[in-house]
Design a protein around this nucleic acid. Structure first.
Length: 286
DNA sequence: ACCCAGGCGGGCG
DNA sequence: CGCCCGCATGGG
């Protein structure tokens, strides 16, 4: 038995290939327009039908799946309205047209934290490799009706809290291993990520930065993709280059000034502007 | 071979 | 404070 969620304006491909946590832990099949990822001890398989303007996601019936999908892909966001708010210049305009329907995703806070600690000084392809390895080693088996292992769950911070730095290093995490071990321990014993206030941008970011290995940029990634705070604006090399070229005559500009500019231009929706600018920059580089 | 990748913490001035 | 450096690893 199957169920579905209808949407207007949603691009599955660019959304799941945007470098969000789903990119790292899920699997996208472009040929069949399908995406699968582990959720709630099961493998959730989505089939995309229709087009970017109007269509539906079809999946095997499960009580909480509909709610999960709507929430995860932020299908309740009014994208047209957000586009109007961030469309400040011709570069943004052409970017939102090119990747029309791409949505910011809302992911589990711990999963987002782990993914973006791994992301530092790294590239998307290798982040995915490392995350998959971590899932393989520390995740729990997800089985089908016959008992075959069809996937692994994403490891919780508790799943990781007893892991040694050496073991985590063996997953290919490199110098980030000590950060991951600390984060798992800290988020299990000292900070409950699920009790932070998603709406208070400054406070949220400040609290996230108490975790070793979480700095300004990673905290913004977690605030945006783990808590859904659209004021968050992660500044990485791609964003930095794009903004310096577009708004600062290609001059080297301080991170603080770039944050101020993003707030001035896109205000409460700068996280969405970030997603589009980042994606365009990364795509055109590849 | 060389360069870069969704940066970070630590150390120094 | 701000700046500079080292850091694991694999793909172009």
């Amino acid at each position: 038995m199957s169920d579905s969620v209808s949407f207007s304006l949603f691009d599955l491909k660019h959304t799941v290939e945007s470098g969000c946590p789903l990119t790292f832990h899920g699997n996208y099949d472009e040929k069949h327009n399908q995406f699968s990822y582990s959720y709630d001890s099961a493998l959730l398989k989505l089939k995309y039908s229709g087009n970017v303007e109007k269509g539906k996601l079809v999946f095997d019936s499960k009580s909480s799946a509909k709610q999960e999908i709507t929430k995860r892909f932020r299908l309740s966001d009014n994208l047209e309205s957000i586009y109007r708010k961030i469309n400040t210049d011709t570069h943004v305009d052409s970017t939102i047209k090119r990747y029309r329907g791409m949505r910011v995703t809302l992911n589990d806070p711990w999963e987002t934290t782990l993914c973006f600690i791994i992301s530092q000084f790294n590239n998307v392809k290798r982040i995915r490799l490392i995350v998959k390895k971590m899932m393989d080693v520390y995740g729990e088996d997800i089985t089908d009706d016959e008992g075959n292992v069809v996937a692994k769950s994403f490891p919780t911070c508790e799943d990781l809290k007893t892991a040694t730095v050496k073991e985590i290093f063996a997953c290919g995490t490199g110098f980030r291993a000590k950060y991951i071990a600390h984060a798992a321990e800290y988020c299990t014993n000292n900070m409950d990520l699920y009790k932070l206030n998603p709406g208070n941008y400054e406070k949220l970011k400040e609290e996230l930065m108490e975790i070793q290995g979480v700095g300004d940029k990673v905290a913004d990634c977690i605030a945006l993709m783990g808590y859904g705070n659209l004021k968050a604006f992660p500044i990485d090399v791609h964003i930095r280059r794009s903004m310096e070229r577009l708004y600062f005559k290609s001059k080297k500009t301080k991170i603080r000034v770039l944050h101020e500019k993003a707030e001035e231009l896109w205000n409460d929706y700068r996280g969405y502007a970030n997603q589009y600018l980042f994606h365009r920059s990364r795509m055109s580089q590849a």
